[in-house]
Design a protein around this nucleic acid. Sequence first.
DNA 1: CCAAAAGTGTTCGGCCTACACCCATGC
DNA 2: GCATGGGTGTAGGCCGAACACTTTTGG
Lengths: 259, 259
Amino acid sequence: MGIGNVSERRLAQPSIGISVVILALGPHGDSAANGSSRLWLPLVRRVRQPFMGSWALPGGDLRVGHSLEESAFKALESTTELHPKYLEQLYTFGDPSRSSGGLPMVSIVYWALVGEAETKDFAEKDNVKWFPVDDLPDLAFDHRRIIDYALWRSRSKFEYPDIATKLVGEEFTLSQLHDVYEAVTGQPIDLANFRRKMLASGHLEDTGRKLHVGRSRPAAIYRYRHDGEPRAEFTFPTTVEHGKPETLADDALSALMPS
Amino acid sequence: MGIGNVSERRLAQPSIGISVVILALGPHGDSAANGSSRLWLPLVRRVRQPFMGSWALPGGDLRVGHSLEESAFKALESTTELHPKYLEQLYTFGDPSRSSGGLPMVSIVYWALVGEAETKDFAEKDNVKWFPVDDLPDLAFDHRRIIDYALWRSRSKFEYPDIATKLVGEEFTLSQLHDVYEAVTGQPIDLANFRRKMLASGHLEDTGRKLHVGRSRPAAIYRYRHDGEPRAEFTFPTTVEHGKPETLADDALSALMPS
DNA sequence: CCAAAAGTGTTCGGCCTACACCCATGC
DNA sequence: GCATGGGTGTAGGCCGAACACTTTTGG
């Protein structure tokens, strides 16, 4: 940008695309070898060369006149009809090797979470299909490593309760939330301590209602409280001519998308 | 990327650029109001419209056939002649508002650290000048917010000793390292506890030599040990046809650049 | 001997971990 | 009542914050 340096400017700007890694909790009944829930993600089948017929991350082009987040959101919508509850920039990939002989390609990759409600239909639908993250098919381009990176990053992000609550419904029991954490980290977590830690965070609000399951004691139903200190957060000094207040949560841009 | 969605493809790909936020410890003698060291960064004066004459982040174009890191490294080299010890992708900015009426512009922003040795000449040199981060001039585009974001992110990255050691020389005393931490966080840090924590990390190696300053007790000189577990790190599953082993440290791509 | 910075010891409290233990419910 | 998860209590350990203290040097 900016100051151009004269020497060796090899024209031919690479094209830019957007890809999205979307995660959701697996369907009811699904569970990993250790019995806890698993994460799933949707892939789309490519209808062009290269890698025609292979599975790939949903994505699309940059929409001129829209922010990157909006472009990601719309790319997701038009390929999978999903509307994530959380969307955040992950990383930009641009190594020449990744295009496998095609034109050079820069991909801005977003990371998204959708709630249970959005995943009613885990069955294959046109060219979209959901896969458990520990059992993915062969993928086009370098999408496999992108997913691995996204999963790795996810684990550190889930320290914050608000992220985890994006994967369950609006309301949930502590057991359900606990399940999400175990699914993401892949590790068993002491339920008793988990409960205390979550409640101590001050972000959970008891709805007063109970969920009865089977013949055991009913569980209290909680809701995430979006008020109070939004935790570690970076706020841009009031960007000019930009509608929504733009904040960077933790170490990347988080956005609750428009309708 | 990938699956194209037919509707509304408005050609005109925005152009891509690379910008770099480089940080270094201020020159000897420089100190903030509270007496501790400050961080400085180099800016370049724009020689074209828009914002001609304003200060801006160093940057350049994508080099076709090179990775993004290499492009960032070379952009930095050609504008400032600096060779960072640490380089990591920060964020990609692409909001339409940021180009201020010009053509839409996507900037992949990198974050870099240079050691003391590189900053011998803090004086203005051609079109490059160093500024303390708490006293920046007006900047072109949205570079001010980019810098603010970079600084904010820096603070969380400095938990790891290896990052901090990139700002001091190869060898350093614990006081010097302590100084870096205070400069980055902007907060006073108990020296006694700091010492213990650093030594406990197992990454510091005593050179056996001492540094004599003034009439006080000489300080032990340490060196960072690059062996052992490289801490939290993500390793790509051995990318095909890609020379150097590519690892993602913490939550972004770190790279020690080639010569 | 004194000032100044290096380096050590010690206490305290919070938080995380592990695990034992009660509680409410349906069958 | 008894199996099943929901929920609480509690003891121990680890780690960071705070701060008093000793050590080594130059003048």
